[in-house]
Simulated scan of single mutants.
Amino acid sequence: GWIGRDLMGWQRWTADLATATGERRNIQLPDGTRLQLNTDSAVDLSFDPQQRLITLLRGEILVNCGAVSPTPLLVKTRHGLFEGIDGRFTVRQERDCTRLSVVSGNVAIHSPHTAGGLSTQAHSGQDYLVDQTQAVVAPPPDMDAG
């Protein structure tokens, strides 16, 4: 069962929002943030007065956020926590790392094992690969993330 957890699509059935293979979905969240799930993706949402949290269970999302709330917008993957300050960015969770591509605006990357709890600031046009230990600048992908 443990080995099959990544191979089976069980997250699709238990997630708050999900897409099947070949399907994409656009959603407007309660705070006005726009979220697009790419094909074969799944997320859980936790929105209340204390937090605005999107947990990416599998796949890729495109987030359009603005400074509409004093509570930060957070995207969590198994490799780190991404704080959308403003703008537009994609988060793609892969087996060994998470790829962050900032289309516009700024995103703070909080890696779980960053020394002293420091975060990395990603700016418009930057791509990062984040794993359990570090966040490193990635070569740009062959196409525009947006």
Rank of each mutant, 00 (worst) to 15 (best):
W2D: 15
I3M: 12
R5A: 15
D6Y: 14
D6M: 11
D6H: 13
D6E: 15
M8C: 13
M8N: 15
G9F: 12
W10T: 15
W10Q: 13
Q11W: 11
T14D: 12
L17I: 11
T19L: 09
T19F: 12
T21H: 13
T21S: 14
T21R: 14
G22C: 12
E23S: 13
E23I: 10
E23Q: 15
E23D: 15
E23W: 11
R24C: 13
R25A: 13
N26S: 11
I27L: 03
I27D: 02
Q28C: 01
L29W: 03
P30I: 10
D31W: 05
D31T: 06
G32S: 00
G32F: 00
R34Q: 06
Q36N: 10
N38H: 12
N38C: 06
S41P: 09
S41Y: 11
A42S: 14
A42V: 13
A42P: 13
S46I: 06
F47M: 03
F47H: 04
F47I: 05
D48K: 10
P49Y: 06
Q50E: 15
Q50I: 09
R52F: 02
R52D: 08
L53W: 10
L53M: 07
L53R: 09
I54D: 01
I54W: 00
I54M: 04
T55F: 09
L57T: 05
L57D: 07
G59P: 06
G59V: 11
I61K: 04
L62V: 06
V63C: 02
V63I: 11
A67S: 08
V68C: 00
P70M: 01
T71R: 13
L73H: 01
L73D: 02
L74Y: 00
L74N: 01
L74D: 02
L74I: 05
V75N: 07
T77Y: 07
T77Q: 11
T77P: 12
R78F: 03
R78V: 14
H79N: 08
G80K: 07
G80C: 03
F82M: 07
F82W: 02
E83H: 03
G84I: 07
I85N: 11
I85C: 04
I85P: 05
D86V: 10
F89E: 03
F89T: 05
F89I: 08
F89N: 02
V91P: 04
Q93T: 11
S101H: 10
V103C: 05
V103S: 11
S104W: 00
G105V: 05
N106V: 08
V107C: 01
A108N: 07
A108W: 08
A108D: 10
A108K: 12
H110F: 04
H110I: 06
S111A: 14
S111M: 01
P112G: 07
P112A: 06
P112Q: 04
P112W: 04
H113T: 15
T114E: 12
T114D: 12
T114H: 12
T114N: 11
A115Q: 06
G116M: 04
G117H: 03
T120I: 10
T120N: 01
T120Y: 03
T120H: 04
T120G: 00
A122F: 08
H123K: 14
H123F: 08
H123D: 15
S124M: 07
Y128H: 00
Y128N: 00
Y128L: 02
Y128E: 00
V130T: 08
Q132P: 06
T133P: 02
A135C: 02
A135I: 02
V136W: 01
V137S: 07
A138Y: 05
P139E: 14
P140I: 08
M143I: 12
D144N: 14
A145Y: 04
A145D: 07
